[in-house]
Design a protein around this nucleic acid. Sequence first.
DNA 1: TCACCTATCGGCATAAGTCAAATATCTTGC
DNA 2: GCAAGATATTTGACTTATGCCGATAGGTGA
Lengths: 127, 127
Amino acid sequence: MKEFPGFQDCPCSGKNLSRLLQPAVMALLVQGPLHGYRILELLKEEAMFKAQPPDQTGVYKILKNMVLDGHVSCNWETQDSGPARKLYTLTETGLSCLDQWKKTLVDYHSSVASIITLLNRKLEPSR
Amino acid sequence: MKEFPGFQDCPCSGKNLSRLLQPAVMALLVQGPLHGYRILELLKEEAMFKAQPPDQTGVYKILKNMVLDGHVSCNWETQDSGPARKLYTLTETGLSCLDQWKKTLVDYHSSVASIITLLNRKLEPSR
DNA sequence: TCACCTATCGGCATAAGTCAAATATCTTGC
DNA sequence: GCAAGATATTTGACTTATGCCGATAGGTGA
């Protein structure tokens, strides 16, 4: 069926890498409160989610977990028109968590860079 | 017990991010055949595994998977002294997979960078 | 004998993410 | 009035990668 076997099912396709959904969601919330559906829409516009859009379920689960962890607060909001929705707001704890994410991701970024360097390293004929 | 609650158990600590073990292992094997235990030792020396050394079991599992996928071949090797061990060698398929990893990781690297940029974005008071 | 190093592996738990689908409100066209 | 579709949230089952605990086994040195 496939013309070229490729590596679609291989980890090297990147499908198993962390999607970084939680920090992405927090990055949106740091600009102001949003409801889940809007977060989902905004994530879809991010370059890193173009290839594979974020899963609805996953986003709502992350929001739920962040509420449980106290990183965001949420309140039901009724609209003049349309179904009720939850407005999520980053808390002080959430801001601290986000600071930790920054450090973690900067480290992670350099880890990825060092792997790339390693991968590019070839066995040089010793001269 | 803890003086500062911190975020040790929070995803923002980075403990749940993909460890990139497979490409790291392949990066070592591209330089020449190695046995599992040696791979483990070499990984421990990498900066990215200093904070949390790679899991032994995990490394052997990845090697096993790579053998199943045809990315590496392995042969039992008996030593004059010491237990028998497996020597792992990157195959041609493995080299192609590694090329795919390079592309994937370069993309991933820029995704992580863009998240960091997003995280640093603050709600500027419009002036 | 005991401790320790080398070397590999199986089972179980967990967290992130995916897939499928249920529920509910409102708008638009017929 | 009603069907279709957008908005909006949620539940449950599942997959996959990874991590932890421990088992097995040979060799070395005290």
